[in-house]
Write a protein that binds this DNA or RNA. Structure first.
Length: 326
RNA sequence: GGUGGGGUUCCCGAGUGGCCAAAGGGAACAGACUGUAAAUCUGUCGGCGUACGCCUUCGGAGGUUCAAAUCCUCCCCCCACCA
């Protein structure tokens, strides 16, 4: 499906693949590309986000993170070096350094201390896999919470380490859209413009437009797929909750302007029925559509930038998704 | 024909005198979801009202009681086993 809709890259997760099926097993299968039969680029996240989202079962120290498997409760330890080794086993094209994604609401003192450690971890990651070691490249991750000076400090220190690309982490962790845009708009323009800028974990169609407008090149987010599974679909006319009773006998396509397999073949009434009946096909069709929508949004953005109409495109989507931002 | 069990709010199913508009589950309805412990989670779910509350409801009709889904009487229906 992803090849068909022309996805350029996919993301794999160090934490999850390490626990299951195990990075050694993946290495024995010839790496993630061969294992999953995906021929285009793959980026692997380091597990840093899981340190954040699964915080009830972990302990962070300068050495690394001790955590328990959510699968069987067994104890494991991730050091910056270990996380790179795992990503080497997975054989991704882009590796991410181990970082601590600070929760929203942590005070400045904690954020600053955490940042120091995250930077040291980033250096250790790079030292364990110096530039040119193999065919994989490595991105550093800017942290610093919601303090602009800490964000700048993070970026400066990371630039000295010599990464092939830079990511912005620690956003969309509970803050308001306004706060997120504020930090994003401040730090992104300061990032090297000759290297990819990657905004991690974001976001809504509007978030992406905002990110691009301040200079972000790449994104990753569970939103389109997770929302699809839960019945919220993104369309050219805004969000559609396919579960709603009003669609029970609606014979029109989900999005008449969409050219995806789902929209070309099925009605809202049918998609609603599949969802209500918990048919597996529902997840597949809905996910196909949302991913197609996002990929198409990115295509539109690239095309608009080339012809100089990006601002118009952004304004258009802001109008369509107006109610979503509040 | 005999014996035993049972009929509860849309469905299933707790409840055997007051704390019961009635547990729990399902369905339905609405919402959430942002580097995926998420095919998950939250709310509503007899009617009216902001609310204290009032009204209607536990197969049907009577009755006992200050008070009945719960006790008594008769009736209707269902199930199991026996014949």
């Amino acid at each position: 499906d992803l090849e068909e809709m022309e996805a350029q890259i996919i993301l794999g997760n160090t934490y999850h693949l390490y626990l299951r099926p195990g990075d050694d097993l993946v290495a024995r299968r010839g790496g993630l590309h061969r294992f999953a039969n995906w021929k285009r680029p793959i980026l692997t996240d380091s597990g840093g986000f899981q340190v954040f989202s699964l915080q009830s079962i972990r302990k962070i120290t300068e050495q690394g993170v001790e955590f328990r498997s959510y699968i069987d409760g067994s104890k494991h330890f991730f050091s910056p070096e270990k996380v790179i080794d795992i990503q080497r086993n997975l054989g991704s094209d882009i590796m991410m350094v181990l970082d601590e994604c600070v929760a929203y609401g942590e005070d400045r003192e904690y954020t600053e201390k955490s940042l120091g450690m995250t930077t040291r971890w980033a250096r250790r990651c790079r030292e364990s896999y110096p530039k040119g070691t193999g065919g994989q490249i490595m991105f550093g991750i800017v942290q610093g919470g919601f303090h602009k000076d800490l964000r700048e400090m993070s970026l400066e220190q990371l630039r000295e380490i010599d990464f092939e690309g830079f990511a912005i982490g620690g956003l969309s962790v509970g803050e308001s859209t306004e706060q997120m845009y504020d930090i994003l708009g401040h730090i992104t323009p300061l990032m090297p413009d000759d290297k990819p800028r990657y905004l991690m974990g974001v976001g809504t169609p509007l978030d992406i437009l905002e990110g691009v407008s301040v200079g972000v090149d790449m994104f990753d987010c569970v939103l389109p797929s997770r929302n699809a599974r839960n019945g919220t679909l993104f369309t050219s006319r805004g969000k559609v909750n396919i579960k709603r009773a009003e669609f029970a006998e609606d014979d029109s396509p989900l999005d008449p302007e969409c050219g995806c397999y789902t929209c070309r073949n099925f009605t809202k009434a049918y998609l609603r029925h599949l969802y209500q009946a918990k048919e597996l096909l529902s997840y597949r069709l809905n996910t196909y559509h949302n991913l197609y929508f996002y990929l198409n949004l990115m295509k539109q953005i690239r095309a608009a930038i080339e012809v100089g109409t990006f601002a118009d495109l952004k304004r258009h989507y802001e109008a369509v998704y107006a109610t979503e931002t509040e």
